[in-house]
């Protein structure tokens, strides 16, 4: 863990970036932002997520219908997981339950994996065009976003859908750390919808840029960052007012976004121009743009 000196993490940080069109995962050292290793993964890796214990990186590979599991200590591929349906699209963890959840675009199911063995334990049929997923901070529910069926809420005890919230073209969902609210970007309508997690009531719709894809919440819960894929920008939302406080120009087709542990930097993958924009979150401006592999999409940063 980085220590809160107020200026900088004392330990080395690494960013893991899935280069969709290279079938690879790049490891970047922070703050030098140099690529220290590029690891071959499955075809068309569209997401990259670090396990809560920091030991592994998971990519979903929508071209080979697999997950690649990478050890963060050796930066090598240690496992390839099959049987996760047609076009796995995202990964979410419930560490206290020892479970991993993977939604698939075309199969329309969430696959439940054991987080130690990575074995597929169950397939939960959900709906059409699943793209995003988040586990509530108390791990009681799993929220799944889709292009065809709205937001489906799964009871994590029974693995059954208990509610479906109508929402056209919802791409990603992320919770505040205290679990009271969640933020969903509406890909088709260029909005971010804020929901009360207690009763799933819509609190507010926030206009953002065109075709929002990625959403991330700062660990202190004060900011939400949204990548506007067709707006070539990142919207910064203040969670106390749920208003956009800044729109930051970035590269072409910004897609994934990750924050450094103390929320000082945001790293944005620009899928369309093979770069990462690094944002200083104090000034909310891009301080550096670095080259990547082809079509960088998923990104995760160690803590």
């Amino acid at each position: 863990m980085g220590t809160a000196t107020g200026t900088q993490a004392t330990q080395s940080l690494f960013a893991y970036v899935s280069n969709q069109n290279d079938d690879s995962l790049s490891v970047l050292a922070i703050p030098s932002n140099r690529t220290i290793k590029t690891i071959r993964v499955g075809q068309l890796p569209n997401s990259a997520v670090i396990s809560p214990d920091g030991a592994r990186v998971y990519t979903t590979n929508r071209g080979s219908n697999t997950l690649s599991v990478i050890s963060t200590s050796t930066n090598t591929l240690i496992q390839t997981v099959r049987g996760v349906g047609s076009e796995p699209f995202a990964t979410a963890f419930a560490p206290n339950r020892g479970r991993i959840y993977v939604p698939t675009l075309y199969t329309g199911s969430v696959f439940v994996l054991d987080s130690v063995t990575n074995n597929v334990l169950q397939e939960i049929p959900i709906g059409n065009g699943l793209v995003g997923i988040a586990v509530s901070p108390d791990e009681s529910k799993v929220y799944v976003t889709s292009l065809g069926t709205g937001i489906s809420i799964i009871d994590a005890n029974t693995n059954k859908v208990i509610e479906t919230i109508p929402a056209t073209g919802s791409w990603s969902v992320r919770f505040l750390p205290n679990g009271t609210r969640y933020y969903v970007n509406n890909y088709g309508t260029n909005l971010v919808s804020v929901y009360n997690a207690g009763n799933n009531a819509l609190i507010k719709r926030i206009p953002v840029g065109a075709a929002p894809l990625g959403v991330i919440v700062s660990k202190n819960g004060q900011r939400v960052y949204v990548t506007n894929s067709r707006g070539s920008s990142v919207s910064v939302i203040d969670t106390s007012t749920n208003g956009v406080i800044k729109t930051i120009p970035v590269g072409f087709v910004p897609f994934g976004i990750a924050l450094t542990p103390l929320n000082r930097r945001a790293y944005v993958t620009n899928f369309g121009d093979n770069t990462i924009s690094i944002i200083d979150t104090t000034t909310n401006s891009v301080i550096e743009t670095i080259p990547t592999g082809n079509n960088p999409r998923g990104i995760a940063i160690t803590s």
Partner: peptide, 10 residues
Amino acid sequence: QQLYVTTLAQ
């Protein structure tokens, strides 16, 4: 004379 484009978004 025309192209029709469908979208998943809208």
